[in-house]
C-alpha cells in the first residue's frame, strides 16, 4: 500500500464541535504489550446516529470497539461516553456507565445453558428491582422487537446464526441502553437475513432513538444503515477516512478507501 495519506476531509456537516456528542474519542492510542495498533484517534459519535467503524481484516476494528466499551485499557488518550471517561471509571460509576451501553458480540455470546428468555432476563435481574413476571414481560417484548416471539424457551444452540444475532441484540437492549454496540452483526449471514438485520437496526434507531456503533465491512449494510463512518487502516495505524459513506465513495482521497467502497481488488492482485 502507498504511504499514508492525510485523513479525508469530512463533509461540511462535521460534528466535531457538536454539543450533542455521545461518545468523544480524543488522542486515543490502543495496542497490546506496549506495541501500538492504532494511534492518535480522534472522532465523535452523535446521539441517535448509526456510526460505523470500517477497515480491512486486522485493522483493529473489533479491538477499538473493545476499548470503547471498556474491556481493554487504552495506552493513551480518552474515551468519553456521555461525558464520563470509561477508562477512569471504577466501582459504581463504572457500573452506571456500563448500564448506558449494550453490546452484541460477533458470535452472539448467548449463554448456552440458558433459554433466550433467561438470557435476556439476566441483566434485568442484575440491574433492576423488577420482579420475575415483570422481567419476563420485558424480555418477551424485547424478543418481539427483534422478531423472535415464540422462541422464548429455545436454547441458543437450537437457533440459526441470524436468530442468535437477533437474540444477542435483544439481550443487549434489555436495559434500554443509550448506545448499542454491534460487532460484525451481519457476518456469516445470508443476504436476506443480513438485510433483515439492517432493517431491524434502522427500525430500532428510528423508533427508540438509540445510538448505534457498528463494526462491519459488509458494503451493503454500510450503504443501508450508516449515517457516518470512520475507516481504520493497519499500515497508517489510524483513521484514513471519516464521513458519510456516499460522500466518501465519491470524494475519498485515499486510494484504499475508494477501492473499498467500489469493491476493487488491490493493484497487485
Amino acid at each position: 500500500m502507498s504511504a499514508p495519506s492525510p485523513v479525508s476531509q469530512t463533509p461540511p456537516t462535521s460534528p466535531s464541535d457538536d454539543p450533542d456528542v455521545l461518545i468523544r474519542v480524543r488522542e486515543l492510542s490502543i495496542g497490546f504489550d506496549g506495541v501500538p495498533l492504532l494511534e492518535h484517534l480522534d472522532f465523535d459519535v452523535l446521539r441517535g446516529e448509526v456510526f460505523v467503524i470500517l477497515g480491512g481484516s486486522g485493522s483493529g476494528k473489533s479491538t477499538l470497539l473493545k476499548h470503547i466499551i471498556g474491556l481493554y485499557e487504552p495506552m493513551r488518550g480518552h474515551i468519553l461516553i456521555d461525558g464520563q471517561d470509561m477508562a477512569g471509571a471504577r466501582g459504581e460509576s463504572r457500573l452506571a456507565l456500563l448500564r448506558k451501553i449494550g453490546v452484541a458480540y460477533q458470535s452472539g455470546a448467548l449463554f448456552g445453558s440458558m433459554t433466550l428468555l433467561e438470557n435476556i432476563c439476566l441483566p434485568l435481574e442484575a440491574h433492576t428491582e423488577l420482579d420475575r413476571e415483570a422481567r419476563e414481560l420485558v424480555a418477551r417484548m424485547k424478543l418481539r422487537l427483534v422478531g423472535l416471539s415464540g422462541a422464548e424457551h429455545q436454547l441458543p444452540s437450537a437457533l440459526s446464526g441470524g436468530m442468535q444475532k437477533r437474540a444477542a441484540i435483544a439481550r443487549a437492549m434489555a436495559l434500554d441502553p443509550m448506545i448499542l454496540f454491534l460487532d460484525e452483526p451481519s457476518a456469516g449471514l445470508d443476504p436476506i437475513t443480513a438485510a433483515d438485520l439492517d432493517q431491524l437496526i434502522l427500525r430500532l434507531a428510528d423508533n427508540l432513538g438509540m445510538t448505534f456503533v457498528v463494526v462491519t465491512h459488509e458494503l451493503a449494510s454500510i450503504d443501508t444503515i450508516a449515517d457516518r463512518v470512520i475507516m481504520l487502516d493497519k499500515e497508517s495505524a489510524g483513521i484514513i477516512a471519516e464521513g458519510e459513506p456516499v460522500w466518501l465513495r465519491e470524494h475519498a482521497e485515499h486510494p484504499w478507501v475508494r477501492r473499498f467502497f467500489n469493491r476493487q481488488a488491490t493493484e497487485a492482485a
Binding site: 434485568l124 433492576t128 414481560l137 417484548m141 434500554d176
Partner: peptide, 9 residues
C-alpha cells in the same frame, strides 16, 4: 422498555 412493559401489563 420497562415503562412500556408496565403499560402493556
Amino acid at each position: 422498555g420497562a415503562g412500556v412493559a408496565m403499560l402493556v401489563d
